[in-house]
Every structure is written in C-alpha cells, then in structure tokens.
Design a protein around this nucleic acid. Structure first.
Length: 112
DNA sequence: AGTATGACAGTCA
DNA sequence: CTGACTGCCATAC
C-alpha cells in the first residue's frame, strides 16, 4: 500500500456487491477526496495489476465504461458486468441509477 | 525539479 | 444539450 488513498479505493471497490456498480466520483468523495476522482481511476489502473479487485464495477458518473480498454480485452469489462446481470448498451450501463451503489448510503462511514 | 498525462467531475459558454 | 476549461493529486518522463 502506498498510502491511505489507494488503500481506501481498493477496499471500497472490493466492497461493491455483486451486480452493482459505482462511480469514481462517489468513491473519491467517500474516501475524502471529492475532487480527486481522477486518482481513483489511477488507483484502479495501478491496482488491478497488483491487487485483484472488481474494477469493472467502477464506471464514471454516467455509467460509461471509460476504462474498458484498460482491461485485457475491450469486451472483458462489459462481459464481466453482463455476467453479473448488468446490461451494457454502447459502453454504457443501462438503468445505471438502478445498479448504482451509493457508498455513503450503503456503507456507514468506515473510512480508515 | 518542472511539465505532461490520466479509468473523472463540475462549471461555464 | 454539447463542447471546452479547470481543479485535483499521483505517476511518468
């Protein structure tokens, strides 16, 4: 672990339930860096090499799979999501609000 | 040490 | 509503 930020990102992402997705912004906000959403993506990018986390459950605020090309295959991320029951349409999660997993609402502040 | 870049998000034109 | 600009912080060069 480099620092608490990354650690929190990893932990939060791992806590995402099956068939659920969340956004970078939410994670960043939850962690305490509401304006560092970019770092969340960075953390995931760096993490998925070293740590195994369901990064496919993390999309941008619109439900767009912006990081799909960071996975091995261009379809891997989408496949994983669909495999969990999340429908993807044109690289975007359908009914995103429905699948969206609000951290602050489902996790009562554990922070670190 | 300074500049550029990134899996984002919010704001303004 | 779409496109451009800015803020944020860690890495890479």
């Amino acid at each position: 672990m480099k620092n608490n930020f990354y650690y929190n990102v990893y932990r939060v992402v791992k806590l995402i339930p099956f068939g659920r997705v969340t956004s970078y912004g939410s994670i960043a906000k939850y962690i305490g860096h509401p304006q560092s959403s970019r770092m969340v993506g960075w953390a995931l990018n760096a993490s998925h090499k070293n740590v195994e986390i369901p990064a496919h459950r993390v999309v941008n605020r619109v439900g767009l799979l912006t990081g799909k090309h960071n996975f091995k295959g261009v379809n891997l991320m989408q496949q994983l999501l669909e495999n969990e029951g999340v429908k993807i349409n044109n690289n975007q999660v359908e009914n995103f609000e429905n699948y969206f997993w609000d951290l602050s609402k489902n996790l009562s502040e554990f922070k670190s």
